[in-house]
């Protein structure tokens, strides 16, 4: 008689639960275990909480529909990362097409261009995610993604290497460059002065 897993806290146990037939329980555990990661990647890719929500739902639906075909050649997280990148690039393409048809609707751009505040002050006025996005956009794509996967998602270089298909050495170099550039950018804003005052 096989033992019944009480907690689905590993990929292997979740997959076993799918095979056992308790699909709803396994699906819930699967989503909860990976939702932070998927949403985080989607948010960085799309720069919009609403779009990131839609994309995350789509990612999990696609993954759950084809989870029976998952062969375990890579980690579940790596597999999910690839689906997320695909879904996000599809959404970006769709949005680009939609915005192309909405010619002249650039209110946000006009707002920033028309304001008399400095770019640094503008950064301070934005909320956390927008501020983060503004800094990250200044980085090359590979450095940005490596930094986020390492810093925010707390993945090892080996895990990131599996996901993006880059060597560990190249990833380390990307990460170090990203950290250096970000530190310089932050030092140039009032944010850093404020932090120094707060911390003596």
């Amino acid at each position: 008689m096989s033992t019944y897993p009480l907690t689905l806290d590993t990929d292997a146990r979740i997959l076993e639960e799918f095979k056992r037939g308790s699909r709803e329980r396994a699906a819930t555990a699967f989503v909860r275990r990976n939702q932070r990661f998927v949403y985080s990647v989607a948010l960085r890719q799309l720069n919009s909480p609403e779009d990131a929500q839609d994309a995350s739902q789509e990612v999990f639906i696609r993954a759950l529909q084809s989870i029976d075909g998952f062969k375990g050649e890579s980690a579940l997280q790596t597999w999910l990362y690839r689906i997320t990148i695909n879904v996000c690039s599809n959404m970006r393409r769709k949005k680009k097409l939609q915005s192309w048809f909405r010619i002249g609707n650039h209110e946000d751009e006009r707002e920033v261009a028309g304001s008399h505040v400095s770019p640094e002050q503008h950064v301070l006025n934005l909320d956390f995610h927008s501020r983060l996005a503004t800094f990250l956009e200044a980085l090359p794509e590979k450095q940005r993604e490596t930094f986020c996967l390492r810093y925010f998602d707390e993945l090892s270089y080996e895990e990131i290497s599996d996901m993006v298909g880059t060597s560990v050495g190249a990833l380390k170099a990307n990460y170090h460059h990203a950290v250096k550039k970000l530190a310089v950018m932050i030092k140039d804003t009032d944010l850093y002065d404020q932090w120094r005052e707060d911390h003596g």
Binding site: R32, Q35, Y39, L43, P49, Q53, Q57, L64, F128, F152
Partner: peptide
């Protein structure tokens, strides 16, 4: 703070997906 904000945003994700 970043992770807390992500957790808030994904609170109902599993229910929504199902």
């Amino acid at each position: 703070a970043y992770q807390a904000s992500i957790d808030r945003a994904t609170r109902t994700l599993s229910v929504d997906v199902l």
